[in-house]
Amino acid sequence: MNMHSLILRTAGHFLLPLLLLFSVFLLLRGHDEPGGGFIGGLVAAAAIVLYLFSMDTESARKVLRVDPRDVLGAGMVLAVLSTIPGVFLGQPFFTAQWWEFTAPVFGDIKLSTVLIFDIGVYLVVIGSVLTIMLNLAEAED
């Protein structure tokens, strides 16, 4: 899978953290504006796939640290769990719960089960895309 390109490898090293940061930005921005877990997850997955192209599968796995299937599983559990809190308040599944508070440095912060769901989706997308990509790349080797 290694393309042996010095330019790509150098760029990959710089782009990986930038793209990951950008994906988190997209994830959080999805709160009230265009963005969200799905697109954020795709950007993060694309970042690691770019790294995979510029290096090899082994170092891509090393960058990820955990197995992508664990990411996938954790994301799914988070997403399903986020649908439940409303039930305890006598509301249907998936009903969003919001908590607002003011933190010293950050100002007003709005947290919600929607955000948890989005983080779950973010992890599911990363996990599933990377599971497929890494398996395909390893099959090529």
Binding site: G73, A74, M76, V77, V80, L81, T83, G90, Q91, F93
Partner: peptide
């Protein structure tokens, strides 16, 4: 609130997620 109608969908999703983990 009658949650019986959602459980047949939520339960397999939940157990599916757990068995991926």
């Amino acid at each position: 609130m009658n949650m019986s109608v959602a459980l047949p969908v939520i339960l397999p999703l939940f157990f599916g997620a757990l068995s991926v983990m």
